[in-house]
Computed example of a mutant assay.
Amino acid sequence: MILVTGATGVVGGEVARVLASSRAVRVLCRDPGRLAVRGPGLEVAVGSYEDRASLSRALDGVEAVFLVTTDPGGHSDERFLEAAVAAGVRHVVKLSAYAVGEDDADDLITRWQRGCEASLRSSGLAWTLLRPRSFMSNTLSWAASIRSEGVVPVLFPRSRNACVDPRDVARAAVAALTSPGHEGRVHPLTGPEAISAEEQIRELASALGRPLACRELTPDQAAARWARRYPPEVVRALVQSARRQARGGKTTVDPAYTRLTGHRPRSYREWALDHRTAFGGDVERPAAAGAPLVAGAGVGVD
Rank of each mutant, 00 (worst) to 15 (best):
D71P: 09
P72D: 08
G74D: 07
H75C: 01
S76G: 03
S76W: 09
D77Q: 13
D77I: 08
R79P: 05
R79T: 05
F80Y: 15
F80Q: 08
L81T: 11
L81N: 12
A84V: 13
V85E: 06
A86D: 12
A87D: 09
A87R: 13
G88A: 08
V89P: 07
R90T: 12
V93D: 01
L95H: 05
A97Y: 01
Y98N: 00
A99K: 02
A99N: 14
V100S: 02
D103Y: 00
D104T: 11
D104E: 12
D107A: 05
L108I: 09
I109S: 07
I109A: 12
R111C: 02
W112I: 01
W112N: 07
Q113R: 15
Q113S: 03
G115R: 11
C116F: 03
E117S: 04
E117H: 04
E117C: 04
E117K: 03
A118R: 10
L120Q: 05
L120K: 05
S122D: 15
S122A: 15
S123N: 13
S123F: 14
G124Y: 14
G124R: 13
L125K: 10
L125T: 13
A126S: 15
A126D: 15
W127F: 14
T128N: 02
R131D: 10
P132T: 06
R133C: 07
S134D: 06
S134I: 06
F135S: 00
M136L: 13
S137H: 13
T139C: 14
T139Y: 15
S141Q: 15
W142C: 00
W142F: 15
A143N: 06
A143M: 09
V152C: 10
P153W: 03
F156C: 10
P157K: 04
P157G: 03
S159R: 08
S159C: 06
S159Y: 07
N161D: 12
A162E: 02
V164T: 05
D165G: 01
P166W: 04
P166V: 12
P166F: 05
R167G: 14
D168H: 13
D168N: 15
A170Q: 11
A173S: 12
A173W: 10
V174Q: 07
V174M: 08
A175Q: 15
A176W: 10
A176T: 09
A176L: 08
T178W: 11
S179N: 03
P180C: 02
G181Y: 11
G181A: 09
E183Q: 10
G184Y: 11
R185Y: 00
V186S: 09
V186H: 12
V186K: 06
H187R: 03
H187E: 03
P188V: 12
P188R: 14
P188F: 13
L189A: 06
P192D: 08
E193C: 05
E193N: 04
A194C: 07
I195P: 02
I195C: 02
I195H: 02
A197P: 00
A197V: 04
A197M: 07
E198K: 00
E199L: 00
R202G: 01
R202C: 01
E203T: 04
A205I: 06
A205V: 08
A205G: 14
L208M: 08
L208K: 05
R210M: 04
A213C: 05
A213H: 10
C214L: 10
E216I: 02
E216Y: 03
